[in-house]
């Protein structure tokens, strides 16, 4: 399965506000849980998420252990032109992942 899913409308009219839905696959370990031999499972949270649409940052989130596993976000932005929406996120293990989706804007 993919590391994340980004959903945008198939075609958006120029100037229209559209919804972006992002689902990241990540355990979001809080650091409060123990494994079966009583050792603490280290904290591993996606702490930063950024989404860039044609070079402009349209969404930025700082996350903490209070966000559910497999974090889901939905946000809005204005259709400026056809192109690409890229989301980049980093977790406590230092792993940076990105996922992109093409966007078609009609006149």
């Amino acid at each position: 399965m993919a590391k994340a899913r980004i959903k945008v409308p198939k075609v958006v009219k120029r100037g229209a506000v559209f919804e972006v839905r992002l689902l990241i696959r990540h355990p979001m370990e809080t650091g409060f849980r123990y494994n079966n031999v009583g050792q603490k499972i280290p904290k591993n949270i996606v702490h930063t998420v950024r989404c860039v649409y044609n070079g402009t940052e349209v969404f930025h989130a700082e996350l903490f252990p209070g966000i559910a596993a497999n974090p889901y976000f939905s946000f809005f932005t204005i259709a400026e032109g056809s192109g690409e929406l890229e989301c980049v996120w980093t977790d406590d293990a230092g792993v940076t992942t990105s996922e992109r989706v093409a966007l078609t804007v009609s006149e």
Binding site: H60, P65, F76
Partner: peptide, 23 residues
């Protein structure tokens, strides 16, 4: 951890609305 999330928005958002899932 009482802070759950911090979202940054701007005029490019068009609408000030965010959905997510929390613990």
């Amino acid at each position: 951890r009482p802070v759950i999330a911090r979202f940054s928005l701007g005029p490019q958002a068009g609408r000030a609305e965010v959905h997510t899932r929390i613990r």
